[in-house]
Design a protein around this nucleic acid. Structure first.
Length: 396
DNA sequence: AGTTGCCTCGAAAAGTCT
DNA sequence: AGACTTTTCGAGGCAACT
């Protein structure tokens, strides 16, 4: 956020407007409202010209560039560019787009749906590419760290064991698979953000989001044992501290989670049910009781599905559109809750899972061993060696 | 035409400096 | 505390691919 009295602005811009200042690029005539935009542009395209103010003979040009934004380009206003028409308009607002695809994607703005869950943190995104970007930018270092941490067995991208996965990777983005080698996914006991991730507030507190939670804060001793490898220590990607803070605060005040709500919501799924289980450490977890969960599901946390939690969201979701959850990693709607078109195409149906059933993905170590499928996980580094404070906090 | 993902920009949040 | 910088996310445009 830039403040109004940015001294740099005076150096960089040759503003046209009296009430708004801009940053101009003299090389290509682009205009930016913010310094950061201008700088990024310089770095990206004119690294040698960084810092140079644009000459003053660009105003006319830039005026045309100024806000093509939401307006259809006019022939006289275009800069030698072919005239394109924004034929497709949004029904809920007056925005217009060049393609229908853009309209559909834009719909997320109105629905507020964020079906793409980050398997590493509690972030949710409305678009897959946003999640991909988030993973690359915010969790890339963790991936490398975990790669080093989990040296045995050697890293194997989940897609390589894709015999259990649909050809498309089970709806998990290629990037996600690449970013999340199997062992990494397995090593992180993702506390399924699920039960609460569907909370109304998009940026709500973790605890509200988790809806689960333990009534006591994370145990300090365990955390201390992890200090030397915590990815939250200096130099690692930051996590939403505000979320963590509010989560911890909520832990102190929130009533015990209604885990059975999840259970009841999943009761429609005959194949995979979620029950409240208690681990050896006395921790409460959601535990899938079906043996039909495949290794792929265990391996890739991106397969988390949010169906159960949506059942008790405080807001009513709009009818599911296949385009909104397309290829999504998360949503699976029961036939009764979907239109005729959505049950087959809208959601990712995992192998071994009946289509259209609510299901709930569970972090691997919450399971009791389930035969060969779990074998590989037993070889993975124990969570205690690689688990971050963050996730451990939610595991308590 | 639909799907997917990358690029870009603007805005806001978070972090750092004075 | 305010100014400033950096990081992250939301969103639109668009190209590649099917």
């Amino acid at each position: 956020m830039f403040h109004q009295q940015n001294p740099l602005k005076g150096q960089l811009d040759n503003s046209l407007s009296t009430d708004k200042e801009f940053f101009y690029c003299h090389s290509c005539g682009k205009q930016y409202n913010t310094q950061i935009g201008y700088r990024r542009h310089l770095v990206a395209f004119h690294s040698t010209s960084a810092g140079k103010p644009c000459p003053e003979d660009f105003p006319d040009l830039l005026e045309n560039v100024n806000h093509l934004g939401d307006m259809p380009p006019t022939p006289e206003g275009s800069i030698n560019t072919p005239v394109r028409e924004r034929k497709y308009s949004c029904e809920r607002c007056e925005r217009r787009f060049y393609t229908r695809k853009d309209v559909r994607r834009h719909a997320v703005v109105h629905t507020g749906r964020r079906d793409f869950l980050c398997p590493r943190c509690t972030q949710r995104f409305g678009r897959r590419d946003h999640l991909t970007r988030h993973l690359k930018k915010s969790h890339a270092q963790e991936s490398s760290l975990m790669s080093q941490c989990a040296s045995d067995p050697p890293l194997t991208p989940a897609k390589e064991e894709s015999g259990l996965l649909p050809p498309d990777g089970g709806g998990v983005s290629k990037d996600s698979l690449e970013v999340f080698p199997r062992d990494i996914c397995s090593s992180y006991p993702l506390v399924s953000p699920v039960p609460g991730m569907g909370h109304t507030h998009m940026q709500g507190s973790l605890s509200a989001g988790m809806g689960v939670g333990p009534s006591q804060p994370p145990s300090a001793p365990q955390q201390q044992s992890l200090n030397n490898i915590s990815r939250y220590q200096h130099g690692f990607t930051t996590y939403p501290r505000s979320d963590m803070d509010s989560f911890l605060l909520d832990l102190q005040s929130a009533p015990p989670p209604q885990m059975n709500a999840v259970n009841s919501s999943t009761s429609t799924s005959p194949q995979r049910e979620t029950v409240v289980g208690v681990t050896a450490g006395g921790d409460t977890h959601l535990m899938p009781c079906s043996p039909t969960i495949s290794t792929a599901e265990l391996s890739c946390t991106s397969n988390m599905e949010l169906g159960p939690l949506l059942g008790f969201l405080p807001f009513s979701l709009p009818p599911y559109s296949p385009h909104m959850g397309m290829g999504g990693l998360v949503m699976s709607y029961p036939p009764a809750a979907t239109t005729s078109s959505s049950s087959s195409s809208s959601s990712t149906v995992l192998s071994g899972q009946a289509p259209g059933t609510f299901s709930f993905f569970q972090p691997p170590q919450a399971h009791v061993p389930q035969g060969p499928a779990v074998h590989s996980h037993s070889q993975l580094p124990q969570p205690s060696s690689c688990l971050s404070h963050y996730y451990q906090a939610f595991q308590q």
